[in-house]
Design a protein around this nucleic acid. Structure first.
Length: 958
DNA sequence: GGATAATCAAAGCC
DNA sequence: CGGCTTTGATTATC
């Protein structure tokens, strides 16, 4: 699949060629930065601590490191113990004591309410299908040896047509009896003293022993078997299909009767349930299948409407028989002419296993996807496919409404395709590169921190790119994947980009700092924070028992997340699923059990919280993110009735102190914002006011004239850009002249995020016919996020957002007076706010990474912006962009954009988010000076220290 | 008893 | 909201 994506990508960028090395811009600007800490300054990027005084930051850093450096249970446990001890001392109230006794009681009561092994299970044979009693029998071991009547059992011959007919009972008159067992003669006899066999036959219908329906199991006690005759001859056998603790096995009309329309094997009360629905004429195979499947655990055939679908899983040795029986058409001696269509495209297995299918199936599905992509491509080229719609996405049901009429379509291939077990191993998946080797190098925090950030950024970048492709597919009217996050995750996995994949980690995950913001659950898995895609509780086995390692609180359950440092977390399970409507009491198993054990083990548990963010950057929407909230300990658990009337487990998690405060807490806690010194530095010129905050000293923001568009000198009269003629909104990239300028595609996703770094982006402009809602108008509308400027400890004023910013979002333009370089050089002393146009610096992490793993992301050389020496001076006139600081590890990047004129020498400088940026995190971009090339008026090399404080800070701007 | 396969559950996502 | 995804744990089997 990956290779396919790559191919597609290349086709979208026809001029693929080796990436040109970006020209580093020559420096003409000189900046002064306040004095302060050096390269070892406290990190500021991911720790939006209030105020960020250096000492405080150091302290926080250290205490986190203590918890983080050695991801070993005992250290964390020690920390947790310490915390708990402290807590005990602080609050030795009677309440705390009573919690324990309360817990003891709860545990006792919960034991009573979950009778795992009732002393004397009772079984009600008179009650039929709807019995839902909770007295489950003890688990059963399979030990029966059975004698099989003719036509049954493992040596059962395949039923031939005649035999089927013979088996068929003549009576069409009987009716489904409510009181099934009473109508039957029940015989049971011992078999080898181990198991028992029960033969039930319908006396009324007077079928012979051999043709009687027969059921065998090995332990009568603990099983209830109901055979319901629905007025037809019966012959069926079901051996050993009861697993787990389900106590009732309902065999519902095992019939050999053609034209009879239902065969079902139910196992009520527990998970296993298979149904066989037959419509007309093909039921003989079912009997065969059931017979042949006698040694399998479960088999089923469904015939719905006019096509057939098989759901089966089987054990070794009987595969052929089962498949044979299920499939019937190609081999079946009595059905040579009457094909049941088992849909298969090009030999790819199309029948579907049930949810949670085997790895065999997964691989074949992957292959299917791959094949379909190819088919898609081929179809779009040749348009000569036999099936007009090759692409899987619509359910089989709607895709093959007339399957029966298609008769022997690709039957030969189907035969093979059913032997998935034989074919599954030569599926060519891309090799999975384990990333463990790389991990060895990540001994210190900085490396792993960078790695995590790099990986997340990579995820975002790949995601945006793949999303872009999917949107293009959708526009063509074809079926696109709806789960680009999963596509991206798979891609990264295949590239070996998952990190922290080794042994499960208790406590902090190296490189993942408190406050990290994630957009998808798969990202949590990619960095090793929480490995499960859906489940809320991750856990591991430690010293023989389960302990919880991380939980995700995302609002799906009735958790209490109001308090900052305490999380009341609901256990998992018990909720009504699709199949059965009623909620069940939660069980103390899996995650619930692990959390319970963590109460006594006192190990730290990572907490990730889900948040909903309203994004109103012109394309109003809500996005959900997940924030790593730090380490907690589970201090108590109890049961209580949940919202669905069932009993649920509740867990109390308390945050271990000394960890960085989270942004949402800061905002929540402080209703009144301290240190606001200017309400709106834009003086109403921006849509959203930009306030200035200073909690460091009394300084006010420096004076400057706020502008919202560039100031061009008199001599500069750039020609307007010729616009496109798209009336609807530039959806057709082939006809939109603006899209063509961008290499044939709109460089933004539908949600307004920029797809990738480009030397130059053409947006639609004033002379375009498209409306303002056009997806190709993003950065021309000014600031859309709630920004504020704030005084930093060491770097003067900085800019941050009060809201979460998704990766790829437009932040602001860098506005000011346009100068020629030589003019700029004359502004000595006032050179702090100069931006050199023409270099189009882009994020190095992104660019260095991409050519390796996604070759089609390379950029055509023709697009490089000419560097003829223009500079933007924001000293006297400017906007919020002038306050954004440099960082060696930035979260924004500058993108050249043209929309209102076509002079490529002086593009707009637009700043975009290069990653997901949590609220209150400082916004930075890379000023991109060349070290040692900045000189003063006398030609002396100038040195400027960098105080960005990022882990990879090189200590100098130039 | 260890390896492998099948089955299942899960606080997601469109 | 139904349907489509995935992964890891558990269970079953050789």
């Amino acid at each position: 699949m990956i290779s396919q994506i790559v191919e597609n990508g290349c086709s979208l960028l026809p001029n693929c060629s080796p990436v040109p090395k970006y020209k580093r811009r020559k420096i003409s600007a000189v900046r002064d930065f306040p004095y302060g800490c050096g390269p070892n300054a406290p990190k500021i990027n991911v720790r939006p601590t209030k105020g960020s005084c250096a000492g405080h930051g150091d302290h926080v850093q250290r205490s986190i490191d203590e918890v983080k450096i050695e991801p070993k249970l005992d250290i964390h446990t020690a920390a947790a113990h310490e915390f708990l001890q402290l807590k005990d001392e602080l609050a030795k109230s009677p309440n705390e004591v009573s919690i324990n006794s309360f817990l003891d009681k709860t545990i006792l009561s919960c034991v009573h309410s979950f009778p795992v092994q009732p002393e004397k299970p009772t079984y009600n044979f008179n009650n039929s299908v709807n019995n839902s009693g909770r007295n489950y029998p003890p688990r059963r071991k399979i030990s029966a040896i059975r004698d099989f009547p003719p036509f049954c059992g493992r040596d059962a011959p395949r039923l031939m047509k005649d035999e089927c007919i013979k088996v068929r009972a003549s009576s069409q008159h009987g009716s489904a009896s409510q009181n099934v067992v009473e109508n039957m003669d029940v015989k049971s006899r011992e078999l080898d003293g181990v198991g028992k066999e029960i033969v039930l036959y319908d006396a009324k219908n007077e079928v012979s022993d051999h043709d009687a329906k027969m059921l065998a199991f090995d332990d009568v006690v603990g099983k209830e078997i109901i055979v319901r005759s629905e007025g037809c001859g019966l012959r069926g056998q079901l051996l050993e299909s009861c697993e787990n603790s389900a106590n009732r096995l309902v065999v519902h009309a095992l019939t050999a009767e053609p034209n009879y329309n239902e065969i079902a094997v139910h196992k009520e009360g527990e998970h296993l349930r298979s149904e066989h629905v037959l419509v007309n004429a093909v039921d003989r195979e079912i009997v065969h299948a059931l017979t042949a499947a006698s040694r399998s655990k479960e088999s089923g055939v469904e015939l719905e409407n006019n096509y057939s679908r098989s759901e089966s899983s089987y054990e070794n040795g009987v595969n052929d028989a089962v498949v044979y029986g299920l499939m019937a058409a190609p081999k079946c001696p009595w059905r040579q002419s009457k094909a049941v269509i088992f849909t298969s495209v090009r030999g790819i297995h199309k029948s579907r296993l049930k949810l949670g299918s085997s790895s065999v199936m997964k691989k074949s599905k992957v292959r299917k996807l791959l094949e379909e992509r190819r088919a898609l491509k081929a179809a779009s080229k040749t348009k000569k496919s036999r099936q007009p719609n090759y692409i899987e996405a619509t359910p089989l049901r709607s895709r093959y409404p007339n399957a029966m009429e298609m008769d022997s379509w690709e039957v030969e291939e189907d035969r093979n395709s059913f032997y998935v077990n034989h074919r599954s191993h030569d599926i060519d998946l891309p090799p999975v590169v384990p990333s463990n080797a790389k991990l060895q190098k990540d001994s210190n925090d900085c490396v792993s921190y960078n790695k995590v950030r790099e990986t997340l950024r990579l995820f975002q970048a790949v995601f945006r790119k793949l999303m872009h492709e999917e949107e293009a597919i959708l526009r063509r009217g074809e079926t696109a994947s709806k789960r680009v996050d999963l596509l991206t995750a798979k891609f990264l996995k295949d590239q070996g980009k998952y990190i922290n994949t080794g042994k499960q980690i208790v406590g902090s995950v190296p490189g993942v700092d408190v406050g990290f913001e994630f957009q998808f659950r798969v990202e949590l898995a990619i960095v090793g924070l929480h490995r499960l895609y859906q489940a809320g509780i991750d856990y591991m086995k430690k010293d023989g028992s389960l302990i919880a390692t991380s939980v995700v609180a995302s609002g799906g359950y009735a958790d209490d997340m109001d308090s900052a440092d305490v999380l009341i977390y609901s256990g998992s399970g018990g909720n009504p699923t699709k199949g059965d409507k009623k909620a069940e009491d939660q069980k103390l198993e899996r995650g619930n059990l692990a959390l319970k054990n963590s109460v006594t083990v006192k190990n730290p548990v990572r907490v990730i919280r889900g948040h909903d963010h309203k994004i109103s950057d012109g394309r109003t929407r809500t996005v959900k993110t997940y924030t790593y909230d730090g380490l907690y300990v589970v201090t108590a658990y109890w049961q209580k009735p949940g919202p669905n009337g069932n009993l649920v487990y509740m867990f109390r998690l308390e945050r271990i102190p000394g960890q960085p405060e989270l942004a949402w807490n800061v905002i929540k806690k402080s209703k009144v914002r301290h240190g606001v010194c200017t309400q709106d530095i834009s003086e109403g010129k921006e849509l959203i006011p930009i306030c200035a905050v200073n909690t460091i000293d009394d300084q006010k923001p420096p004076f400057f004239k706020y502008i919202t568009s560039m100031l061009y000198p008199d001599w500069c009269r750039p020609l307007p850009l010729r616009g496109c003629n798209c009336v609807g909104g530039c959806t057709d990239s082939a006809s939109c002249s603006c899209a063509l300028r961008n290499g044939g595609e709109i460089p933004f996703n539908n949600n307004g995020s920029i797809v990738e770094v480009k030397p130059l982006v053409y947006e639609c402009g004033p002379s375009c016919k498209c409306p303002p809602t056009c997806p190709n108008r993003v950065s021309q509308f000014g600031v859309r996020f709630q920004l504020e400027i704030f005084k930093t400890e060491a770097r003067g004023w900085g800019v941050r957002s009060l809201n979460y910013i998704p990766s790829g979002s437009f932040i602001c333009e860098y506005l000011g007076e346009l100068l020629e370089d030589r003019q700029a050089e004359q502004r000595i002393g006032n050179d702090e706010y100069l931006f050199d146009i023409g270099s189009s610096f882009s994020d190095r992490n992104l660019l260095d990474e991409f050519p390796n793993i996604m070759p089609h992301l390379q950029i055509g050389p023709s697009e490089v912006v000419d560097d003829v020496g223009f500079t933007i001076d924001a000293e006297r006139y400017g906007n919020v962009g002038r306050f954004i600081n440099h960082s060696c590890s930035p979260n924004l990047y500058a993108q050249n954009v043209l929309y209102d004129h076509e002079d490529r020498r002086i593009p707009h400088i637009m700043l975009f988010a290069a990653e997901n940026i949590p609220a209150l995190q400082e916004l930075t971009y890379h000023y991109n000076y060349n070290i040692g090339e900045v000189r003063d008026v006398n030609g002396n090399v100038k040195v400027k220290h960098c105080f960005c404080g990022s882990a990879e800070c090189i200590g100098r701007l130039y």
